[in-house]
Amino acid sequence: MLSYIGKRILMFIPTLIIISFLIFFIIQLPPGDYVTSYVAAMAAEGEIFTAEQIADLRVQFGLDDPWFIQYFNWVKGIVTEGDFGYSFEYGRDVWDVIMDRLYLTLAVSFIILIFQYGVSLPIGIYCANHQYSAGDYVLSFFGFIGTATPNFLLAIIIMYYIYVKTGNVYLGLFSTEMLQNGMRWEYVPEFLGRCAIPLIVIGTSGTCGIIRTVRAQMLDEQARQYTLCARAKGCSEWTITYKYCLRAALNPVVSGLAGSLRTIFSGSTVSAIVMNLAIQGPVLLAALKSQDMYLAGTIVLIQAVLVLVGTLLSDIALAWLDPRIRFAERS
């Protein structure tokens, strides 16, 4: 097992090299660079740059080198000093910019992930155990609605109704008071209320898939001979559902977790913009639009690493979950 993990981790390196190269290449592909979008943004505010000033800016930002030299410098910085570069837009180290939003992103993402699985798994099991009952139909229906509706639309609808009912628009996770005075106990109810909107919007989008998968898998497993055997042995229904069926049914769910690691890091972008959440997704979008390439490159690179790690972890989890996979690996 250890050698297997070791080999996989070793494979990361060439994969990451190729990915980082591709990322960098694609980001700088559109004509122009950060200076172009910077000059344009300044012009929109009324500040005009002459051609020589623009050339100066390019030198200042180090953007006058050809791109593969920029790429090489960037990689050198990462490997030798752990320096991921400089964000032109924010005027700070890329790592600082990412760390700024990291905790909130992780917190929001974890909560949403827990909500998703915490809601979907029990519903999936219930639906399987009570197949074709009224509860099965009703719950599946809500799951479908959550997935069929585009997230941002759901967010807008929810915010609209809240505005009509209360006259307040709960935009963003923090109210002005919270930002001014820091978190206090009296703010917790409002904070939870504000969290509920992104939770429902983003959380419900994934639940349907998980519910239907779990339900189908559970129905499959329940029809198997070994459940009959276990029942004949005197096992309780609870044991049969949770110890035997669920473990087998989790196979596709665990595979699905591979992608979650990356999602946890960057959060959902469109929903974040609509609900004005200060998480990583909008940062990446803005960085890409303004060609703030070290920031964009680093975020995408981190996402790539997380996908690789996530896949590895989910493979390990699968092997732990299902001994047949272990056996196949060994042989």
């Binding site: 915010m159 505005y163 006259g167 307040n168 628009v169 935009l171 109210s175 002005t176 913009i273 609509v274 004005n276 909008p282 803005a286």
Partner: peptide, 14 residues
């Protein structure tokens, strides 16, 4: 960042 959101915040007094 979004103009519509700014308008919304204006409407609710934020």
């Amino acid at each position: 960042s979004n103009v519509d959101q700014q308008l919304m915040l204006l409407l609710d007094g934020t």
